[in-house]
Design a protein around this nucleic acid. Structure first.
Lengths: 197, 197, 197, 197
DNA sequence: CCCTAACCGAGACGGTACGTCGGGTCTTACA
DNA sequence: TGTAAGACCCGACGTACCGTCTCGGTTAGGG
């Protein structure tokens, strides 16, 4: 970034200019933070990044693609807690996820990605692939609980995670991310012990 | 609907014309079914309903409002199963919900409502209010289980429903509504007995 | 023009707004004067007229159509001189035409129309129709000369005018409109007496 | 042209590659023939010629320059008839010019040059210089008529040619090049004998 | 005989304009 | 006052070219 802001970005030959790529992603993220999905247009991103629209379309075929790329460029939270106990792992998992979504831009961006996925089929596919991958990663802590003998053998770790994630998605999508430790605790207890407690 | 399609709808004086209202809702629903949220625009609805755009804006302040109204005009599924057993109630609840979303237009419409709620704050509020109401209604069958002594006193019926609903939302929003009875059964067992089984 | 410049132009119902039409034509003319054909774009006209592009496309199907309309809205010169003598009529005709093109915007606009007609077939057709009409009008003074017995019966008035107009076009299109009275006089003499004089 | 079409053209060192030059001119001409001025863009020429855009810009500073070069590379018609009689010389001159423009690509290309000259000042200058030169060359046959005593001494040969050329331009620019021998004959008679015939 | 300079094709860059679609507002003509 | 209709301004869409720039490779000619 030798001349950032001072001079125009130029072509660096018949190859992608990483400076432009970064500028576009940063601009897209900033717009998403400030104005939300409503203000997110290729036009606006190009304007803010001082990039030409064709430059964006050259590398991202659609709004959804750019959105997903922005999301993937976010710092990711650690989603595999390891507190030694299933119940506290569950609490840690949800607390971390809620915090990640609440504190930074990740929540707003992820909401946008989900919304876009309801319109754009390619975004749906990409989102599905992404979440399935995430689920199987996060399921690790449930598997560990099973290995410890803390969880029953017949439970599906992925299904358990999906339950937690679904709960979190619902809170995210209805703007109810406020942290309520008691509630999370109760939820963790319900899940680990079951309704029949 | 005396002359639907044959002659132009006109004003019926200083009051809302229910024919127009119906025509607009039907057109909106049809567009949502056929083209999804992507093709859903006030312009398109007006065109299809042979209505003027101001007529729509007069009665529905925004795209989100119309969308929600369309969703509310759908036939609703019975969400309070009563099979006599908690576990089968859970299965019945999810099976009914999945079927409702999968078989008719309700799923596509609800996806659109959720997507819209990520852009439009009023839609978010409306959606939140709607789901909280639904949750407390559906929680009835968990309360009944508690009354029967089948569920522990300390569980929160609303939280339990939220878990199930969140799971269902996730499946809906990632286009994974295919019914898998075994999976649902396992899920019901996990929830009722808990991971510690 | 009750509120020109002070407030936005609005729709006046389901009909063409003449204020918009005038604003667009004025803007188009101004751009043509200031920047020539090179700066003449629908985008620029819309910007300057504070009009939407669709408003322009609604009423003028193409750049060429707008250009021709601008030309037609120019004040027209009297092209049928009547000095009583063929030779001085010819001089008057050319002098008036040169002056018309040289002094106002008409020349620049007409050059643009001709240029556009080399690209756009509809503009070619419109231009041809226009010039044929003009030629037959202007031919009147030659016909009068024939009536007076000053011109031979076998001459074609239209062909004579075409000769004069072609000469003028050539001068216009190569930026040689500077008035040279002697030259025009000689030309008039050549045409009226013939090369064999 | 040892390997035209089979292998890529490369640099031949620090000097202009005549193969590239030829390929560009041929491509430009072909585009002008097939799509007219509307399809004529540097981009299209480069694509068709398998040339880099900078190669074109290196040698032709503007679209107009390339256009003029294409025109100059056309075979030129003989414009100095010598039938022994002024009247038939005029007919021969116009017949040859019309045929030249009508039969090959020269007409379309010259129309493009004229159009371009209405936008680009350098093209205007080049065109003016070109036509003045042409006029003085073509004026030769009128001078010969004067020498034979067939034309009056006071007539200006250049002005006479300009009259004929202007007539031809007008026909070219309004797509009216269809040959009409009778009309040309009448025109020749009018010019040689004068309107007062 | 190597080095430098200029050329070559290729294609990315920041931009402008294209012609279209939809947004939300406004007015008319009619009931 | 409500309705169908449709014009208004605005702004975004995705595409085509603009003229510039850099790249990697090539070849000729001077040192």
């Amino acid at each position: 970034m030798t001349n950032a802001g001072t001079s125009r970005r130029r072509s660096i030959g018949a190859q992608r200019n990483p400076e432009s790529q970064q500028a576009i992603l940063k601009a897209a993220e900033a717009i998403l933070m400030e104005d939300g999905l409503a203000g997110f247009s290729i036009e606006a991103v190009a304007r803010r990044a001082h990039a030409g629209k064709p430059t964006i379309y050259r590398w991202w075929p659609s709004r959804a693609a750019l959105l997903l790329d922005v999301y993937h460029h976010q710092k990711h939270v650690e989603r595999v807690p390891d507190t030694g106990s299933l119940e506290t792992d569950i609490i840690a998992f949800l607390t971390a996820l809620f915090g990640y979504w609440r504190d930074g831009n990740a929540g707003a961006i992820f909401r946008s990605v989900i919304a876009e996925a309801q319109t754009d089929v390619k975004a749906t596919d990409a989102l599905r692939a992404y979440v399935l991958d995430r689920f199987s990663q996060s399921a690790e802590f449930v598997r560990r609980a099973q290995a410890r003998g803390e969880a029953a053998d017949w439970v599906s770790p992925e299904l358990a995670i999906e339950l937690l994630a679904g709960f979190a998605w619902n809170r995210l999508l209805t703007s109810r991310l406020d942290d309520n430790p008691e509630e999370l605790q109760r939820l963790a207890r319900q899940i680990s012990l079951g309704l029949k407690g």
